[in-house]
Design a protein around this nucleic acid. Structure first.
Lengths: 259, 259
DNA sequence: ATTTTTATGTTATGATAATCACAAAATGAT
DNA sequence: ATCATTTTGTGATTATCATAACATAAAAAT
């Protein structure tokens, strides 16, 4: 992975959280010259992620570029997949009803759910990811519940045994769960083992289990198994999903939405 | 109605819509000098409605100040107190050592501790306030622990029974605790009863108990009692503290720092 | 291994913004 | 109306930012 990409990713993360940051600060945070930051921001500007006004850089909360497999790739042309994730997120968000209690898992796609949540509805949302929390804070209609613990930088989530207890004490209409792999025999998987108890707890606490993931995750197996496919009620993914999967999903009695 | 109040209300409305505006533009829109706008923004800043970085003013979508009776009324003497709070926060932050594990309570003063924490030291920090979390995330040397739960907008904190368990499982060198009232006979108090179990838990989990509060809170009694004064090891406050309190604190064997 | 391309840092220069002190104007109370 | 207080404006000073041109370093390609 090249240095520039890594830096730009950090830059976006910082902007997402803070909303607006001065170039000077970004420069010292990322240990590069201000000139480099300016050049990076030029790229973000072209991708509609941030706007640079005299003195400060402002993050655009409505941006459609989505993190893909742990990293943004703005230099290549993988923007298509990012648009897909935003579409998936927007659609999933539309499944939410007035006064719903929902749980939002970690991940880049689920982040787009949080960002696209209706602002005119009264909602309760449980989450444990910092990126999700930041998106939710923009939404005045949301009553927030947050499961804390120890911070894991790679997934931007908090987690602890007490958190699991907290989640188990919550009841929700819908859970939006993410996955790094979906396999016919081997079930639904994620990357880190610490995610497993959390994912199992949120599945247990919700009436409707909605899996949100782009089509590239199908047929993929990841190290940490957290549930069988048939526990899922609804899948939201993009329309690049193959026919055999569509049949398989229908046979399993799962409602499928492709966007 | 006051001219100034009207202008500030218009200003907030403009910011709400645009998100970020330059002072120059605001000045011409409202037909007053830039200096006046700057002074108005000083007030908004103290009320967490907007932040002014070199060049532009950014609206804070998560601001907690609510319009009442059709307009904002922000004209207190918040300004003076704010500088004091930052001084207290900066001093308290200087008490932190390399590799310390610290707990930071909610509050505007404790937020200033988080903001002034050294960036060159490796630290672990436990908190449960969103404002504190935002400040900590700027600091790359900080390992974060977060106690979640249900969100309380008035204190910007999360809280739940499972959180208390989580806190009880943590051990720290220092806790920085805030208070809304400190009274000779009636002890240390806060406003909301839900804060009490949290405050008691963080006191229990720390070696050193450091009370940070401005001098206006002394002789004040608030509804929710959480500990006797003599449980405190160190008090950090401003130098407006009266002589009888200095004597009292000394007699109680508490180390006092006034800034 | 050498060339070419790309990425980053440095410097200088002009533009813009922030700050301060003081003056002017508006407001409010007696 | 008069005086005190608050609010606003002005200009000079200082600090910060943007841009471009150039130099250097690192990667990629041949």
């Amino acid at each position: 992975m090249n240095k520039k990409t890594t830096r730009i990713n950090k830059l976006i993360d910082i902007l997402k959280i803070r909303g607006f940051v001065s170039i000077k600060e970004l420069s010292s945070m990322l240990n590069v010259s201000e000139m480099t930051i300016r050049r990076d921001l030029e790229i973000l500007k072209n991708n509609d992620i941030a706007e640079n006004i005299y003195g400060t850089t402002v993050y655009n909360p409505a941006h459609t570029v989505v993190k893909n497999e742990d990293e943004y790739n703005l230099l290549g042309e993988v923007k298509k997949k990012n648009a897909q994730k935003d579409d998936i997120g927007r659609f999933a968000a539309s499944l939410v009803d007035e006064d719903d209690i929902i749980i939002i898992d970690t991940g880049s796609t689920t982040e787009r759910i949080a960002a696209n949540l209706p602002t005119d509805k009264s909602l309760s949302v449980l989450c444990y990811g910092v990126n999700i929390l930041m998106e939710l804070r923009r939404n005045p209609g949301v009553k927030m519940l947050f499961a804390g613990g120890f911070y894991h930088a790679n997934t931007q989530m908090f987690e602890s045994p007490e958190s699991i207890d907290f989640i188990k004490g919550v009841r929700a209409q819908k859970v939006f769960i993410s996955a790094a792999g979906v396999h016919r025999q081997l079930g639904v998987t994620c990357v880190n083992s610490y995610e497993v108890p959390v994912k199992r707890a949120i599945l247990q606490s919700s009436v409707q289990k909605i899996l949100v993931t782009d089509s590239s995750k199908f047929d993929v197996v990841r190290p940490a198994f957290f549930c069988e496919l048939d526990r899922i009620d609804i899948i939201v993914t993009d329309n690049a999903l193959g026919d055999e999967w569509r049949r398989l999903i229908a046979e399993a009695g799962i409602k499928l939405y492709t966007v």
